[in-house]
């Protein structure tokens, strides 16, 4: 695992404090975490321990209260809203628990959306989208609206959307949480395949079975990393 090169992601001393009604919630305290290219990291821990918070900081959806975050050797903890949007768009693919497809856009347009925001030309967009949809086996449903698909199919489209822009890392927050076990396994199988061909993945999951898919499991408790285990 140690190839000497610097990690894709390095969090050092990251703290996140939420202030609500004069109550401070320390969601994360002093997190140190490196993620290397090609790794498949699973984050586990009890409810409320800060998994989602960690993922939204990794995904530049939120900023840490303290500490530094370097992505591809660039410090990104304190960038402007617009710069974070740009990096999110290029480097990060999100897979959400509740799919979050836009109901008024077709499958194709949903997958195309992040590429559009990148300012990519129509021809290139088309080939990227088609490739991603083929990868998840949803190319035949390109013209459907999300409401015309099953939950498992919707999540596969969401995976395609995350993939299409060829991001540096895929972030998934309980991607199987809204799926039955059969569909859940299918999506997990898909992530495994993606990892096999080189994708870097960081996934939050409650399910021990799925955590096994990853080659490294980080356990959080009360906002701290209590275990960082690399599978044999």
């Amino acid at each position: 695992m140690t190839n000497g090169s610097s990690p894709l992601i390095r969090l050092s001393g990251v703290t996140k404090v939420f202030l609500t009604d004069e109550v401070e919630t320390h969601a994360l305290s002093g997190i140190h975490l490196d993620i290397r290219v090609g790794e498949y990291v699973s984050i586990a821990g009890p409810s409320g321990c800060g998994k989602t918070t960690l993922l939204s900081i990794l995904g530049l959806l939120d900023t840490p209260s303290e500490g530094s975050y370097s992505l591809k050797e660039n410090e990104v903890a304190n960038l402007s809203f617009a710069d974070r949007a740009r990096i999110r768009n290029r480097e990060i693919g999100f897979i959400f628990q509740s799919f979050n497809l836009i109901g008024d856009l077709t499958v194709f347009e949903n997958v195309e959306l992040p590429l559009t925001y990148r300012g990519m030309g129509a021809g290139e967009r088309k080939s990227f989208v088609t490739e991603a949809l083929e990868r998840v086996g949803m190319a035949h449903r390109a013209k459907h609206l999300p409401s015309q698909l099953s939950g498992g199919q919707q999540q596969r489209v969401a995976v395609a959307r995350a993939l299409a822009g060829r991001p540096a890392i895929l972030l998934a927050d309980e991607p199987t949480g809204n799926l039955d076990s059969r569909n859940g396994e299918a999506v997990m199988e898909l992530l495994k395949e993606l990892h096999a061909v080189g994708a870097t993945i960081c996934m939050v999951t409650h399910d021990e079975r799925f955590a096994q898919h990853a080659d490294r499991t980080v356990h959080l408790f009360d906002g701290r990393v209590v275990e960082d285990r690399i599978a044999a």
């Binding site: 989602t52 939120d62 959400f96 628990q97 799919f99 836009i102 409401s147 939950g151």
Partner: peptide
């Protein structure tokens, strides 16, 4: 808007 809320939606998959 709190962008991290994107990660926290409950309910159905299609945004309604």
């Amino acid at each position: 808007v709190d962008l991290s809320s994107a990660l926290k939606t409950e309910g159905g998959g299609v945004l309604s």
